[in-house]
């Protein structure tokens, strides 16, 4: 039996192996994604991001316990940074998720960023698709708030939680990291700590400052409109939810907000719009990759090097060079 069939039959080892293939972007991984594609598209993808130490893993742990009580199967992708110097990583998010062990309805996978941003987004997308196809209704993706990779992952998620905590200095960390805009729900975790009111107040005033924006990511600058049958869909204004992830306070309320957001996405047509935008950009990425590699196969190495030489000497611009290599077909 092949790995994909085994995954669809609920084999966890096969699932783990395919995740590795996808992370390493192997031929087998690509083939598995293609076969699993028709089975995916049902899961609710939830991004959880925020500054280091705000309690993201603890929060994911609590949310997973809560979703399990509703009998939903939960997958978790926990992303931590690779060392830029050695390429190695210590992935420590599982430490806070020990409550989740021994439950076949849960699957946790740790992942290192491994350098390239584009690669991370692609690997994360692939992994969530596998979990989705394998029947996990909820897929949570934890990332450390550091800018672009969070934005890429928010593009992937249906609902993005940005986690803050009091006591990390006066600044709102998410603003520093430039990720406040991607929040669908703001979580003030560690609400047992002094300073919650201040953190919450600061977030509120930030929210009032920023226009409520619709979180549909444009594709080629084209606005992805909401489904036509929906009349004046209300804009979503991110709620702020307090939580204490060491004891579960605020978790049912947060889960409720997440459900309301999912409902909002469906009713407004944003769910479908996000899905389409994501599939289009995936199409784009694959198309580019394929065309480039087809092109490189067609053009002899020597010819390519020759033209490149002229570019180095600045006697040809890159655009002119491409035009020459593609027989005048470039714009």
């Amino acid at each position: 039996m092949d790995l994909v069939t085994q995954i669809l039959n609920g084999d966890r080892l096969a699932l783990a192996r395919v995740l590795t293939h996808i992370e390493n972007d192997t031929q087998d991984g690509r083939a598995a994604l293609a076969t699993l594609f028709p089975h995916a598209g049902k899961a609710h993808l939830i991004g959880v991001t925020g500054a280091p130490g705000t309690g993201k893993s603890s929060l994911v742990n609590q949310l997973a316990l809560y979703f399990r009580k509703q009998n939903k199967r939960v997958a978790i992708v926990a992303v931590d940074p690779s060392s830029p110097f050695t390429g190695g990583a210590v992935l420590g998010d599982r430490v806070r998720m020990r409550d989740l062990s021994g439950d076949a309805g849960i699957f946790i996978r740790s992942m290192a960023t491994r350098g390239s941003l584009g690669g991370l987004a692609q690997a994360t997308a692939g992994m969530t698709q596998v979990f989705d196809a394998a029947g996990f209704e909820i897929v949570m993706i934890e990332t450390v708030g550091a800018g672009q990779s969070e934005v890429d992952i928010a593009r992937l998620a249906h609902t993005t939680l940005v986690v803050e905590a009091p006591g990390l200095g006066d600044d709102i960390q998410a603003i520093k990291a430039g990720i406040l805009e991607i929040a669908d729900i703001l979580v003030v975790n560690k609400a047992d700590r002094p300073g919650v009111e201040n953190t919450e107040k600061a977030l509120k005033s930030m929210l009032e400052l920023s226009h409520p924006t619709q979180h549909i990511f444009s594709h080629h600058g084209k606005y992805m409109s909401a489904a036509p049958q929906v009349k004046d869909a209300a804009l979503w204004i991110p709620p702020i939810q307090r939580t204490i992830s060491i004891d579960g306070t605020g978790i049912p309320e947060l889960a409720e907000q997440i459900a309301i957001h999912a409902e909002h996405l469906r009713v407004s047509g944003d769910w479908a719009a996000r899905e389409r935008a994501r599939l289009e950009s995936e199409m784009d990425a694959v198309l580019q990759e394929t065309l480039v590699s087809q092109f490189r196969e067609r053009v002899p190495e020597s010819k390519y090097d020759e033209v490149m030489m002229q570019v180095y000497k600045r006697s040809l611009s890159p655009r002119e060079a491409v035009k020459m290599l593609t027989n005048g077909r470039a714009k």
């Binding site: 190695g88 210590v90 992935l91 420590g92 599982r94 430490v95 021994g102």
Partner: peptide, 18 residues
Amino acid sequence: RDAGMEVIYTGLRQTPEM
């Protein structure tokens, strides 16, 4: 990690099953 490996760290008090 410094040798370039990816280390999944699970913390204290793990049972063999975990």
